[in-house]
Design a protein around this nucleic acid. Structure first.
Lengths: 196, 196
DNA sequence: CGTCTATTTGAATGTACTCAAAAGCGGTGG
DNA sequence: CCACCGCTTTTGAGTACATTCAAATAGACG
């Protein structure tokens, strides 16, 4: 199996020698998942960290009004998981589901401790990608505190460049936390090019 | 200086022997800060991780409309910092300022690498507290996506128990991302006890 | 005591939601 | 290949949530 893309990703943060690469890839597994299949069900413990080789995935929850809210998307060369469930092994609060036919690489929770012990650099790696995530979430919180739906939509287009054509408008609305009708009117009446 | 509280905090996640405690405390420094003083200015690189022994701190930014938005508070026994600025040494996007006369313990960025090298357990510690933070931010994002101001206010009271009497209503509004007038009417007209 | 800021209250406005109905679009089976 | 079904998108009307602005009141602090 071809693990080039994931190795490239990891080696942006830590340098691995050949043995380390061998060990790391030995705990990975490749998987094809059809469109609209679940990778994680809420309530279950998340036992894998997922890397998207090809395709598109949504991570979402159902809120108290029964509406789906998309917490994040993952496309090519991105990791996705329920962090808290994965690390602490508590029941997940998210569902993770494919939006397209998708190819993923799995890293099992059970292989994490041996990986960290054998290649301690990975402790650093996970801290660093955790930090990236933290920063991404920070941006999102700031947008929610300060920006109107229109601005948040524009920020979304920047934060996830080129992803929009792969999603339904409904899904974008769910990510932004607005109603599909409202997003529709934002996109039409407006004014996205012209002002602000 | 008395480092008991911070040691207790750290040892909730990792166990330290005496030498490790000695080394860890040797890189800490204690500091008293008066009310309304800055601990970090936005634009500057955050060179310390702060632990609050006593007092209350706000971390905020000024949005594009010139309004202050409080990203988080820290009170007794909590860490606070600009994660991204601290770890990656980029200019901070936040101001951090005391709300009360405050006693803090500082951990300098420059001492972090030696600390991680000498006591690798700390690599784990920082990953774990990063994870806690991630989870806290997740909750906040979910609240912003799904909840009205009234619900967010109630969640705030739970997330920061007993902190409200120490803050002005204005500061709470700034944390929630609503206008002070609106929070005022929420608290009065209502209904916080009775419904929902 | 006076000044400065925070809080309250109300009116007018804007942003976003719900509900409903119509139109568009994609996939499936006959 | 077409017709139908189900889902998404659009549009509009009415409503609810939240903001701005302004003015009055209350509190905090030197």
């Amino acid at each position: 199996m071809d693990y080039n893309s994931i190795l490239k990703k990891v080696q942006q943060y830590i340098i691995l020698n050949e043995q380390e690469i061998d060990f790391f890839t030995s705990v990975l597994s490749f998987k094809k998942v059809k469109k609209k299949e679940f990778i994680l069900n809420s309530g279950k413990v998340c036992s894998n960290y997922y890397y998207v080789v090809k395709g598109c995935i949504k991570k979402y929850y159902i809120n108290s009004e029964g509406k789906e809210r998309i917490f994040e998307f993952a496309i090519e060369n991105q990791w996705i998981s329920d962090q808290n469930s994965f690390w602490i092994q508590t029941p997940s609060i998210f569902d993770i589901e494919t939006i397209e036919d998708t190819e993923i690489i799995q890293l099992k929770r059970i292989d994490i401790e041996p990986l960290l012990t054998r290649i301690p650099k990975f402790e650093r790696y996970f801290r660093l990608i955790g930090n990236d995530l933290l920063f991404k979430q920070e941006r999102r919180i700031k947008q929610n505190l300060s920006c109107s739906a229109k601005e948040r939509y524009k920020d979304f287009l920047q934060d996830y460049p080129n992803i929009e054509p792969r999603l339904s408008q409904r899904q974008v609305a769910s990510y932004l936390g607005v109603s599909p009708e409202f997003l529709s009117s934002l996109r039409n009446k407006s004014n996205l090019i012209s002002n602000t």
